[in-house]
Design a protein around this nucleic acid. Structure first.
Lengths: 365, 365
DNA sequence: GTGGCTTTTAAAAACGGTTCGAACGAAGTA
DNA sequence: TACTTCGTTCGAACCGTTTTTAAAAGCCAC
């Protein structure tokens, strides 16, 4: 087996064009074989090689074998750029996300990557870090990169940028409600259902005074959770006064701050529901620091079921949003739309469920 | 401003070639303007447009302005595939990683993405999920994708695959020691320094019997930590018998299992150093479940300083491996090699330092 | 007005693939 | 034997850029 082919005149030219003269090449450029090399090696045309690779036309077993051998001999890997350019297709999915270090996302990303891999797609990661300017720049880059599809999991997009993307790309939005169009799908977490379960759980334990630590009010998914909380409190406890709501920021500190506000209030609630686990953990820290014990003095429910919810002290009762499923569904929706552009984008709501651990208990008498 | 140009015969052809007949187009394909359209619009050649975009040659202010206006009018975004193909360059970095949901990585990835963004590069994420087959497939894909550079942060690569990559791509390895070559850099965490600080800290508190929960022994970085532990124990406590070592897996469960082995041993150590935070947290859980209190009965030191190290009960004393810096350095090294291929890849060691929290204290008398 | 410069622009050849339509033999039919 | 038909392969156009090379335009002095 010939592992390195002799340099042809053509190759030398290629080297020269790339600016490395032959006289004294300090670092040899990376050499890769092209479909032409394979074709020559196999004694067929490039068209045939292409058909063997892509299965786009019938080729005799004999020819196919010759081609495959040649491919192996040349260690040939088709150039993805050339391929995308020529075919007008691409196998890359863009993933626009606010903050991958937010504990909610890594698992989603992992699932997305895994599902994409299985279907032959690659994922390119665009992390806005909550910066609208960066988001805007990414929207431009996405247009240059000609992705097959884009998953939007960020809230830094104003409606203009958003429109810009959906006009140019097949896309799936996460958690942004009531937008679906021709080539755009929509996937959201059923926050209301989870909040309902949480409220019901606390009510059935005997709680009446339940407070809510909400997410930042500019983030739609936080608003949904807050409104659901208010609705279900009214439904399950129609005779109680409207429950207290504290605004947080989805982060540990927001939970802490909300907790100290709660501690400063006249009459302590017997339970709280936080809009996510980070804030629940922050609040628990603050409560314990103030000498309260959980769940005896106050019950705490979180939302998300991040890995550390199970590890806190006490382990946190929380609503699980199934992150692996979210990732899978996002890719599923994208790939369906990419491969069947005639279908309209669909809307999908992913169910949540309560996981009962040790941070909730009946209130003290 | 003309937002949509009339369809030319050429455009119609393009639509037909893509398989969408005009007769009854259910979903219009995404239309994008090409450099040719811009050139026509500005009344110049495509070469000039290209030079304006890339600044590759001087163009008169007048022409440049005409071109820029045309670009804006056409909402033109150069096709990245065509660009890479023609120029032989690409602005994509591959990031090969074992498991992005491992709490060590998200922050590294975030920093990598941020540094890449700043320099105009995009990141494509390849998550092997500890699966060697998937790793092998990714190595092939990397070769197809013609990345500008690749960061290898995984241990699923056998030496053949590893060689395969480094032969075809400029690359940076993370945490794999003693490999540097022409177009390959090497970045590692200075585990030994961190372990030394941890040992010194415990010894200065008065501990003598210190055990180690090691990482999986097939992972080199785990072995380094274990050996460093043994070395420094011998150096700081030359008269004590060799310390006990328990093998874990870098995960919560491994820490738990190790802890229960420790609890079953004849004479309990007064302190343990775990090879990472996850195992330290797992061990703490197990110790507390057995009725020990930390740090009074046993001190615990972790490694990494993941976000939850500060949130555990008690907050964990741990060695911080600066993940944001790791990410920055990786990109820095890659970009340097990409843009100055004549330079040899360098080796860089990133320092660590101990963060003292509440999980360590002098041993009970 | 012309010859010799230097700018600026344009035409055309890559880049490495895909894909359409035609060419070519072999086999089948009249 | 001549005419189709079918199955397989090939040549060539094309994808949207960059980049080289060459030509045109502008400028100046003589």
């Amino acid at each position: 087996m010939r592992t390195t082919r002799e340099l042809t005149g053509k190759d030398i030219m290629r080297q020269e064009r790339r600016g490395h003269l032959i006289e004294h090449p300090p670092i040899p450029p990376f050499k890769t074989s092209r479909i032409k090399d394979v074709a020559r090696e196999a004694g067929v045309s490039t068209a045939t090689v292409s058909h063997v690779i892509n299965g786009t036309k019938y080729v005799t077993d004999d020819t196919r074998k010759r081609v495959l051998d040649a491919i192996a001999r040349c260690e040939y890997h088709p150039n993805a750029h050339a391929r995308s350019l020529a075919s007008g297709r691409s196998n890359m999915l863009g993933l626009l996300i606010s903050d991958i270090s937010n504990p909610f996302f890594p698992e989603v990303v992992k699932a997305i990557e895994a599902a994409a891999f299985e279907r032959g797609y690659n994922v390119i990661l665009l992390n806005t870090n909550y910066d609208p300017e960066r988001a805007a720049d990414y929207v431009r880059r996405l247009s240059e990169l000609k992705m097959a599809g884009v998953a939007l999991m960020t809230s830094e997009l104003d409606s203009e940028l958003f429109h810009e993307i959906t006009r140019r790309q097949t896309s799936v939005v996460f958690d942004s409600h009531d937008v679906t169009s021709e080539r755009m799908g929509n996937i959201c977490v059923d926050y209301a259902k989870g909040i309902e379960e949480a409220v019901r759980h606390l009510v059935s334990l005997g709680h009446r005074r339940i407070a809510h630590i909400a997410g930042a009010s500019r983030i739609p998914s936080g608003v949904i959770r807050r409104e659901a909380f208010q609705d279900f409190m009214k439904r399950y406890l129609p005779d109680e006064p409207a429950p207290a709501i504290y605004e947080g920021d989805f982060r540990l500190d927001g939970g802490r701050r909300a907790a100290s506000e709660i501690l400063a209030s006249e009459e302590l609630p017997t339970a709280i529901i936080a809009a996510n686990d980070m804030m629940a953990l922050g609040a628990m820290r603050e409560f314990r620091k103030a000498g309260l014990s959980i769940p005896q003095d106050i019950s705490v429910v979180g939302f998300d079921d991040i890995a550390f919810a199970a590890l806190s002290e006490p382990p946190l009762t929380t609503v699980c949003s199934p992150r692996a499923e979210i990732g899978r569904r996002v890719v599923e929706a994208l790939v369906t739309m990419i491969e069947h552009p005639e279908q309209r984008g669909s809307e999908l709501r992913i169910p949540t469920h309560l996981i009962t651990r040790d941070s909730t208990a009946p209130p003290r008498k």
